[in-house]
Amino acid sequence: MNPALTDKRLLIVTGKGGVGKTTIAAALALESARSGKRTLVCEVNTKERITQLLGKPEVGPEVTSLEENLWAVNVRPEESMKEYALMVLKFESIYSAVFENRVVRYFLRFIPSLQELVLLGKILFHLKEKRADGSFRFDRVIIDAPATGHAITFLSVPQVIVDTVPPGAMSTDAAWMRDLLVDAKTTAVVLVSLPEELPVNETLELHQALKDRVKLTPRLVVLNGFIPARFTEAEVEAPTTTLVHDTMRAHHARSKLSLASQKTLQKLGLPVVPVPRIFGTEFGRAAIEQVVALLSGADS
């Protein structure tokens, strides 16, 4: 595990849409599990992809063991709502009488941000969950969070509820969730970016917004799809045929952009880990294993 993350129990992986957040979340989860940490990786109400990337069957909304030290879940609002309601109400019979009433269910959908709160609540509950011997059930929880704008909305929900909702079970829960999220000793954000101008700019904006508005602490930037230099400037400039020249120039331009992106991102004052682009027609377990190796290799 990257030194910036070793002692963190909650990792939130986010970035622009399409930068490979899920890939990085899956790789970090595998790396964490292999380092001996009992790790839970969570997707948030989405088309499940992590299990597929790891070559496992879908797990759905139940926390399910994938392999040694590794569990996965795709949290969904309906099931999370039920779990949450049961925790507050203690009795299944009351839950069924009230919450399985269609009318009430309808109503609950409209309590501002309750859906996001229970999704986040379930994830953070597992972070606090303890075993009979008093140790944590999971040493580390990794969230494959939504993309930029939605990540900010999602992660701000506890604070918004603390600010909006008068005292009650909901605001009490929102408060401890907020406290966990902003606790820099427990929680770290991993920003994923691509070596292109727009994703890099968005990473800078996201970093700012997470720090200032959500009060979260980004610790690491993963620069996915990095193209290492292959041709020297002189080789690119040397006379040759148009086709060969274009091939070298295109590669060279991309590798220069990769380097420039890395430099720009380093201005954030965080470690920037380049993960070279992986070429292949199938993107699955083998590719994730490669990413794990690349992430770990970057430690030394």
Binding site: L89, V98, V104, F107, V165, P166, P167, G168, A169, M170
Partner: peptide
């Protein structure tokens, strides 16, 4: 209402 009472255990009456 019983239902309103139960929901307010969640959200607080004031909500």
């Amino acid at each position: 209402s019983y239902v309103a009472k139960t929901i307010s255990r969640f959200t607080g009456t004031e909500t």
